[in-house]
């Protein structure tokens, strides 16, 4: 490309960037900067307005999904709940942003960070990780799981705290003894890990098997339950 061509291209870009008459822009640009400084929006004020919005949305029944995060021995967990109940627990490795985007598409984009609705879930998880809680007593929204996968999830709480069961025996529990591989898929796509205990499902040969939160998380949960 010649120097002339480069210069012409640059001029076009500049014209696109500053389309108005230059005099007007110089005058007003300075004022606009002063205006923006004059009406600052401090993060604290926005935080307060955000919380007020979340409370009003909850009151008006338009907060379709509320979420928060909690710290835990298996890393930061995202908790999300509809008005029906807890709909999603997500490991950091799943990408919390991606999980929220998926919820926006599958459930509703009316999603806000609103810890209030998740107070009970956060408390029970805290008690569980402290070794003081053996079963969760939370309303669940199982909409993200359907068909046989949902059937499998509904049977997982039958494996008691501190115990494990093989994929094959869970297939039997779920009424389809030959669907061992489908049980593996159901566990790998469990939208409510930890709370719906897919970590208690292990391989028939005694090895731990895979886990959607990674092998370390599965080991931590199983040893936590074995110790308590």
């Amino acid at each position: 490309m010649s120097t002339d061509e480069l210069a012409r291209e640059l001029a076009r870009d500049l014209a696109r960037t500053f389309p108005a008459a230059p005099g007007e822009n110089e005058l007003a640009g300075e004022l606009a900067r002063d205006l923006a400084r004059t009406f600052p929006a401090a993060p604290g004020e926005l935080g307060r307005l955000h919380d007020r919005l979340a409370a009003a949305a909850e009151r008006d029944g338009i907060l379709d999904v509320a979420y928060r995060t909690v710290d835990s021995p298996v890393g930061s967990l995202l908790l999300a709940a509809t008005e029906q109940g807890l709909i999603r627990v997500a490991y950091a490795s799943e990408g919390h942003e991606a999980v929220l985007q998926a919820l926006a598409m599958r459930i509703s984009p009316r999603i806000l960070h609103a810890p209030g609705r998740l107070e009970a879930a956060a408390r029970e998880l805290g008690e569980y990780f402290a070794g003081h809680r053996r079963r969760f007593d939370l309303p669940l929204d199982l909409r993200l799981s359907a068909g046989f996968r949902r059937t499998v999830l509904s049977h997982l709480p039958e494996i008691g705290y501190g115990r494990t069961a093989s994929y094959a025996s869970v297939a039997e529990l779920a009424g389809r003894p030959k669907a061992v591989r489908a049980v593996g898929t159901a566990c790998a796509t469990n939208p409510l890990p930890v709370v719906v205990p897919c970590h208690r499902v292990v391989r028939s040969d005694g090895r731990m098997g895979g886990y959607l939160g990674g092998p370390d998380a599965k080991r931590i949960l199983l040893s936590l339950e074995a110790a308590a």
């Binding site: 955000h50 999904v65 979420y67 985007q101 598409m105 984009p109 999603i111 960070h113």
Partner: peptide
């Protein structure tokens, strides 16, 4: 799809 409303705020 559409972003979560949190991202809009």
């Amino acid at each position: 799809g559409k972003q979560p409303f949190e991202a809009v705020v």
